[in-house]
C-alpha cells in the first residue's frame, strides 16, 4: 500500500499532536485512504507517543472506521425495519451474488465494491433503500440493484 509520511504528518499537525485529537486524525486518514491501514496507524502511534493498542481500541470502537481496505464504491444496504419488510434481504443477496461477496467477505478483490448493511438510513419512505457512495437509490429490487452495479462496472453509471 502506498502512503506518504508527510501527508500523515500534515494531518497530525493540522489536528494537533495530542491524545484528544485522535478521532479526528483517524477520520482524516480514513477519508484519504478509504480505510485505516495498519502501517499508518503504527506510524501515528510512534509519532503521537500513544500505544498502538490504544489506537486500535479507538479504531475498532467506532463503526465508521474500517481497518480493511474498502472498494471505490461503497454500497450500503438498509436493513432497518421498513426496508427489511419491503424485502431488502433479496437485494443484498443478489448484490452479493453478482459481486462474489459473502457475509464474511465485504470487498471485491479488485477493490471496486464494498457491501455493508446498515440499520436505518432514515429514508423509510423509499424502502427498500441502498446508497452508493452516499447517493440514495430508493425502491430497490434485486434486478434494479444488479443493473446499477453492472452499469458502474462498465463505467457508464454515475455512482460518483
Amino acid at each position: 500500500m502506498y502512503w506518504n509520511k508527510e501527508e500523515i504528518d500534515d494531518i497530525i499537525e493540522a489536528r494537533g499532536n495530542n491524545q484528544s485529537s485522535i478521532i479526528s486524525i483517524l477520520q482524516d486518514i480514513q477519508e484519504k485512504y478509504r480505510y485505516l491501514p495498519v502501517e499508518i496507524l503504527e506510524y501515528v502511534s510512534k509519532k503521537m507517543d500513544l500505544s498502538p493498542a490504544k489506537i486500535f481500541g479507538v479504531a475498532t470502537f467506532y463503526e465508521n472506521f474500517s481497518l480493511e481496505p474498502k472498494g471505490k464504491y461503497i454500497i450500503k444496504i438498509c436493513d432497518g425495519t421498513a426496508c427489511h419488510v419491503k424485502k431488502s434481504i433479496p437485494v443484498l443477496e443478489a448484490l452479493r451474488k453478482e459481486l462474489n461477496l459473502s457475509e464474511k467477505k465485504h470487498t471485491t478483490d479488485d477493490l471496486l465494491f464494498t457491501i455493508e448493511t446498515v440499520s436505518c438510513l432514515g429514508a423509510c419512505g423509499l424502502a427498500p433503500v441502498i446508497t452508493i457512495n452516499d447517493e440514495v437509490h430508493g425502491k430497490m429490487t434485486p434486478d434494479k440493484a444488479v443493473d446499477i452495479i453492472k452499469g458502474l462496472k462498465e463505467g457508464t453509471g454515475n455512482g460518483n
Binding site: L50, S51, A53, K54, F56, G57, T60, F61
Partner: peptide
C-alpha cells in the same frame, strides 16, 4: 507505561 492491552470493539 507499556499499553500492550486495550479494550476493542463494542
Amino acid at each position: 507505561g507499556v499499553g500492550a492491552l486495550t479494550f476493542a470493539y463494542r
